[in-house]
Amino acid sequence: MLTYIIRRVLILIPMAFVICFLVYLGLELTPGDAVSHMINPDAAGSMNPAQLEALRQSLGLGQPFHVRFWSWFTNLVQGNFGYSMSGGVPISNIIATRLPATLELAAVALVFSTVIGSLLGVVSALKRGSKTDSALTVIGMLGVSIPEFFFGLVAISIFALNLGWFPVGGRSMPGYVTLWDRLPHMVMPAMVLSIMLTAGVMRYARSSMLDALSRDFIKTARSKGLPEWRVNLLHGFRVALTPVVVLIGFRLPVLIGGSVIIEQVFQWPGIGNEFISAVRSQDYPVVMTIALLSVMAVLVASLIVDILTAVIDPRVRLGE
């Protein structure tokens, strides 16, 4: 098991390197360079080309691509992502203040979708063909097909503006310190963010569960005289779980992508919001860094999925 995990982590390293390279290449290909962004265009007109060139040299921009890439990469590994073009703030600072908010939201949404999605899916499968099942199927279809921002706007208009149960947006208010204080702020964005994933998990859990229940070992379990709950949960759900975990892993990017929209709708001060404002102000280093981090997050997620699958499904434990 341990060798399996180590092997998986080792595979990740070259992949991460290639992605960093592609991101740097993307940065390189965007119009202009650091100098053209540092200097206000009016001033640039009055500077002579030799001065600009000297500035470029002093910043190391005259060096060949691979040298610059390597220096950028080594900095990256040390947690130094470079500087934002608007204001010159270290990008790592931006990330450090914005990331926790995003992770908080994503974690709540992930846990919620996994638990509620599987639960509803299993109920749906066990009550196959009943009214509950049909209702859940319809809800699931709506959940995966209606865009999240729509749910967001509807939720704001109903629960915030009309009923006044939850605040319209933001993450916290002055004087709110504990998680408990902030909870009302979190409810709507987290719920809306999880709708799509919950619906996806539910649909998948249902079909996975139905598949598991139709397998021969269920008949064996029943023929042993085990009670129904044990047949359904220990034998059925346990086997149905593996594909569900894989699905959740594959859908994690949806959560990441969704958070960009949801943070915008609810004015949640997370990475997604930062991403949008960086795109608006053409702050390429910030945009690329966030993109890089998202890709890394997906990679790590897939690693976690692989390890989890190995833990729950003995047939996958190849490292033995």
Binding site: F217, K219, H235, I312, P314, R315
Partner: peptide, 25 residues
Amino acid sequence: MRRIRGAEIAMIFQDPMTALNPVYS
């Protein structure tokens, strides 16, 4: 019925490849 099934009357099936649950020893 469950007390009898498996204890006093037991059954084995056609395909042993699928009759055992793959995730339990």
